[in-house]
Write a protein that binds this DNA or RNA. Structure first.
Lengths: 343, 343
DNA sequence: TTGTACGCGTTATCAA
DNA sequence: TTGATAACGCGTACAA
């Protein structure tokens, strides 16, 4: 069943059927009704491939993310997909992993699929050595590229992010201003976003004219599922003589490991150990005491990303960089001398 | 740059270029090399839409899931996407939500995109009233439909699932055989899979010639993010006089709520309260004590789903229903008199 | 308001 | 081993 069949049944030309399909108003109402009823009775749907060939688009958008089973990335993908779908686009999801070659391959695969736009979810796709970002710059010559939680300055690249540095600085300041001296900083990635967080931690010390001791900054090289591993990691640091009265983590799961460490060693939270996580995920609610964490308003980020994406695709000129502020959400693992806000 | 341009530059016909592209062997090596080098130098890629129009496929597969930010579904999507990508397919993801009309709409949207196959992730798409599953049966007339964690008997529908009933029965038996009398059963869905779990709970009592008291079966109507809500829910049941010495939950987050209840009320786990969750998610590791949970081997399910999917698409005759067994993973919230296996 | 005819870029069939 | 050409099904100038 194609447009020819419909046109014959309706006794009109394919052009008229096409006009009806695409809602043009220069069709006599009687003709339109007849065509519509025949299309309905035949259950006819225009062939998407033929349409794509002619119009050079199938209204599809590529979403790249390293690991859509990661809680944070999964949420991002979810928000983005829902918003795009409402706008009539469908999403091709590719989980690339963290290997750069796989990521490049996935990108060119999407390009060869002729998607209208590609969204890079998370900063793992950006290289510190800017020359190595050429694969992204090249892609942006053919279609718009959207970056979530990362930033790259280039025509055709649109960055939507939370100021992770400021958010982490705020969290660090909260700890310092509540009398914490030895803040263990845990991170598990060297991505763009992760480095920003770390710089926020450091800058807080500068701001308070304090020395930021590098011995308190530690990289956990393990899976985000392996909370027991985090516990062992922290225990190891303590056994080596490192003393700390606070833990600040670049991800909630690391902070949960710290809570485990405190509970198992009879350390009081938050009196003797304050703990702050990042992402404000469900993990914050599943431990006792509940974890204070930085919320970077992912849903808002995603809504704006889609807004800018759609705007760009419809030819409007949109902001190249859009930055939001994160927010420290206090729960039970921090002392909050100002106001003890509850969720 | 299209196949005509390449053919001109190479001084051959488009047919020959097409043969080279598709790796046919009836091309003179010298010709092939020339065409290949020209394609490479021009950075030529065949137009996917034109190819799709001719072949009536773009090697794309639709994945429907209600909520890809749900931890369990996110993992499923991840495994499926990775496996399909390896086989040369790309995935169109649609997050439908739990509303049936939205789900139907998403399904027909995928059909109109001419995907090669549709995968329904999770049993929320299946209706207890089998007549209402017509939309799935209809779809299966045009392309294969794969069901993860659900089952429907029909030509063109392939079901891959874990025997949730048996797994839940095993978990219940473990509790009963360790002397638990009053097992609170918590669930949060009426899906196919959820009903199977519940029936497993009930059948365990039958097996032990015990009475299954319906007053112990409770539906939590809230978000999986709302662990505090679960805590309140359980507290409410206790305050109303319900006594229980075990909690069995259809999802880990419900079980975590039970752990909170025990901790805050000074109830000893597992001595005075045994708790078992379901899905064996990361939540099992982020609480203290760590949660025993049923693992339904999601990765294996997904691998097999993709295997069967690919087989079907390549014309092979594949199993209509494939069932795996779940497994109770003991951690710190259960007594395991047989063997205390650790992860 | 409607119809004709061509272009979109492939693949596949057939003939050479 | 190669080439000419007809599909594939739609959108759209252009003509009427």
């Amino acid at each position: 069943m194609n447009i020819y069949d419909i046109s014959k049944l309706a006794g009109v030309s394919t052009a008229t059927v096409s006009r009806v399909i695409n809602g043009f108003d220069n069709v006599k109402p009687a003709t339109r009704d007849k065509v519509l009823s025949i299309m309905a009775s035949q259950g006819y749907t225009p062939n998407a491939f033929a349409r794509g060939l002619g119009l050079n688009t199938m209204n599809s958008i590529g979403i790249m993310c390293a690991d859509s089973s990661d809680m944070y990335l999964a949420k991002a993908v979810y928000y983005i997909e829902r918003n795009l779908r409402e706008e009539g686009y469908h999403c091709i999801l590719t989980c690339t992993g963290y290997n750069r070659d796989s990521q490049k391959e996935a990108l060119s695969s999407l390009l060869s699929q002729h998607v209208d736009c590609i969204i890079l979810v998370g900063s793992t796709f950006i290289d510190k050595d800017n020359k190595k970002n050429k694969y992204i710059y090249d892609a942006s010559d053919s279609i718009p590229i959207m970056l979530l939680n990362a930033s790259l300055e280039h025509k055709g690249i649109y960055s939507i992010l939370c100021d992770d540095s400021a958010a982490m600085q705020e969290a660090t300041l909260n700890l310092l201003d509540n009398g914490r001296k030895d803040i263990l900083y845990l991170f598990n990635s060297y991505s763009y976003s992760a480095e920003k967080k770390k710089s926020g931690y450091r800058s807080a010390f500068e701001l308070r004219k304090m020395n930021c001791d590098e011995r308190y900054i530690h990289y956990f090289n393990g899976s985000s599922q392996d909370i027991e591993g985090v516990y062992n990691f922290i225990s190891g640091l303590a056994e080596k003589g490192l003393h700390f009265d606070a833990v600040l983590a670049s991800d909630d799961f690391l902070a949960v490991g710290a809570i485990k460490y405190a509970i198992r060693n009879g350390i009081k939270i938050p009196e003797d150990l304050s703990i702050i996580g990042y992402n404000n995920s469900v993990l914050t609610n599943c431990c006792e005491p509940e974890l204070s964490s930085v919320d970077n308003h992912l849903e808002v980020l995603c809504q704006n990303l889609v807004r800018i994406c759609i705007g760009t695709l419809s030819g409007q000129s949109m902001a190249q960089q859009t930055v939001f502020r994160g927010e420290l959400v206090h729960r039970k693992t921090t002392i909050n001398k100002s106001n003890d806000r509850e969720e």
